[in-house]
Every structure is written in C-alpha cells, then in structure tokens.
Amino acid sequence: MDTVRHYVELYGDARFTSTTDDTRLYGERSGYWREVEGVRQWLFSTAGFKKAIGNADSKQAARLLATQGVLIPGRSKTVTQVKHSGGTSWFYVIQFNSDAE
C-alpha cells in the first residue's frame, strides 16, 4: 500500500483529473479522482495501477489492497465501472481512509 500511496503523492496532480473535468490531460494519465462522502477516491486505470505497483503482480497487489480496505472492489471484480468526462471505463478504486495508513 505504501507504494500506491507514494505514487499518488508524487503524481496525483499530474496524472489524475476529476471525473467531472473535461480538460485534456497532457502527458501520462494514470486515471481520475472523485470525492465520495468527503473522501477522495483515486481511480486507477489498469496501466496506471501497474505503474503504481511496480514489479508486483497486479492480481496479488489488488487482493492485498482489498484485504487492507484500501481497494474498493466492484460487485464481482477488483475493478469498478465508473463514468467520467470521457465516457465510462473500468478502474481500480483506491481510497486512503486516514493518514495512519
């Protein structure tokens, strides 16, 4: 989880935009973000998630993050379908609940 948090701290403003922002992101996009009940959720594309976890296995990383309560799984998958300014896509939904994580 520290690797994913570090990735967000490094690239949050540069590689993510709000799901409601239709401004084109120049450079490498890792996903979007949205606010849910006052908490920011980071919506990682598959490519963005793989970059964030480095050389780790994506299925194992997703299971670990879900076990830790950081990844919010979809109904039957580790990814969730989310509407954004460019349409609808599947994302790994990451939510850090406190600074202690």
Rank of each mutant, 00 (worst) to 15 (best):
H6S: 15
V8L: 12
E9H: 10
E9N: 13
G12L: 13
A14I: 10
T19Q: 05
D21L: 07
D21G: 12
T23R: 12
T23V: 12
R24Q: 08
R24W: 01
L25H: 05
L25V: 11
L25Q: 07
Y26M: 07
Y26K: 08
G27L: 01
E28K: 14
E28Q: 10
E28G: 08
E28I: 14
E28T: 13
R29C: 12
S30R: 11
S30C: 11
G31M: 05
Y32G: 02
R34F: 07
R34G: 02
V36F: 03
G38W: 10
G38F: 06
R40D: 03
R40K: 15
Q41Y: 02
L43D: 03
L43Y: 06
S45G: 08
S45C: 13
T46R: 12
T46Y: 12
F49W: 14
K50M: 07
K50I: 02
K51S: 15
A52N: 04
I53T: 07
I53A: 10
D57Y: 02
Q60G: 13
Q60L: 15
Q60V: 12
Q60R: 15
R63Q: 13
L65E: 00
T67W: 02
V70R: 04
V70P: 07
L71N: 00
L71S: 00
P73D: 01
G74A: 07
S76D: 07
K77F: 11
K77Y: 08
T80Y: 06
V82H: 03
H84E: 04
G86T: 06
G86H: 02
T88R: 14
S89P: 06
S89H: 03
W90R: 08
Y92D: 00
I94T: 10
